[in-house]
Simulated scan of single mutants.
Amino acid sequence: MRTLNGALLGAIGLMAFTAPAFAQDQEFSGPYIGGSLGHTFQRSDNDETVQFDRDLNGSFGDTVVTSATNAPNAFSPGFCGGTATSSAPGTGCGDDRDSTSYAARLGFDVQRGNFVVGVVGDIGRTEISDSVTAFSTTPASYTMTRSIDWNAGLRLRAGYAAGGRTLIYATGGGAYAKVDHDFATSNRANSFTVTSEDKDVWGWAAGGGVEQKVGTNFSIGVEYLYTRLNDDDYSVRAGALTSPATPANNPFLLGAAGTDFRRSDNRFETHGVRATAAYRF
């Protein structure tokens, strides 16, 4: 977060230093402060699965089997891109949660004729969660969920001021989020250890919008933003219980002292549509 703030302040300072005095008809020149409020949603991810590492060598893609002598797939019931509402596949999977997003923003623009370039940073919250569930033959369910605690971004933007007071722009740059991880299972025969419950993740964002001046200093607008975060290095290890002791023929213990599993897709992708408001100094 300090990196984003430092880069934003540096970019604003550089643009303020290099820009000459602003003319009165340059509606979008100078610093501004504001906020946004909107809705964030996700693409359908019903094709996502869970990957397994039976021998704990760091290589995922193994098949967890129910017996050492033959090899029926312990997860043959399959997977779903949501949260488990029961242990039965096909009837017990809920949708991911899409929700409200809100943020404060700070930026600086330079206008030359009808062309505008600038930098904008924001920090806020997106109340959204993304889950995937694996179903075993026991039957049991295993759900991995990630949700955004809070998020921030630093982007460049460039646009065209049509009619003088209507700015049409594109934007893109870096994205950051504090992501919380949760794990839930109906399996009571094994121990489960997660690598981390929350972590810093980074990615990028791109989109565009329209900003309309409604007075000397105020503007309102609408913006679309696609965000892709790289949520990797999160896994869960299934191991043995000591009391009561997990049987040695437990499917998670047949390959080694346990089995690691992780999501098949480390991309945390969101789409956001939001209203914006700003005060320009």
Rank of each mutant, 00 (worst) to 15 (best):
M1T: 15
R2F: 11
L4Q: 10
A7Y: 09
A7W: 09
A7S: 13
L9D: 11
I12E: 12
A23G: 14
Q24A: 15
D25T: 10
G30D: 02
D45V: 15
T49G: 05
V50G: 11
Q51I: 12
D53T: 02
G58V: 10
F60P: 03
G61F: 03
V64K: 02
V65H: 08
A68R: 14
N70M: 04
N73C: 06
F75G: 02
S76I: 08
S76E: 12
F79E: 03
C80Q: 11
T83V: 12
A84L: 05
A84K: 04
A84F: 05
A84H: 04
P89Q: 14
T91K: 13
S101V: 04
A103T: 06
A103Y: 04
A103K: 10
G107L: 10
V117L: 15
D122A: 15
I123C: 11
R125Q: 10
R125C: 00
I128R: 04
S131V: 11
F135D: 06
F135S: 05
P139K: 01
T143M: 07
R146W: 03
N151T: 14
A152K: 09
R155S: 07
A158E: 04
A158F: 08
G159S: 06
A162P: 03
R165V: 02
L167R: 00
L167W: 00
I168R: 04
T171S: 13
G174N: 14
G174Q: 13
F183E: 03
T185V: 06
N187M: 00
N187P: 00
S191L: 06
S191C: 00
V194H: 06
S196G: 13
Q212P: 00
V214S: 01
N217I: 05
I220Y: 10
G221R: 04
E223M: 02
E223K: 02
D232G: 14
D233A: 10
Y234L: 06
Y234D: 11
S235E: 13
V236M: 06
A238I: 07
A240I: 00
A240M: 01
P244Q: 08
P251K: 06
F252G: 07
G255E: 03
G258Q: 01
T259N: 01
E269F: 04
T270Q: 08
V273G: 07
T276K: 08
T276Q: 06
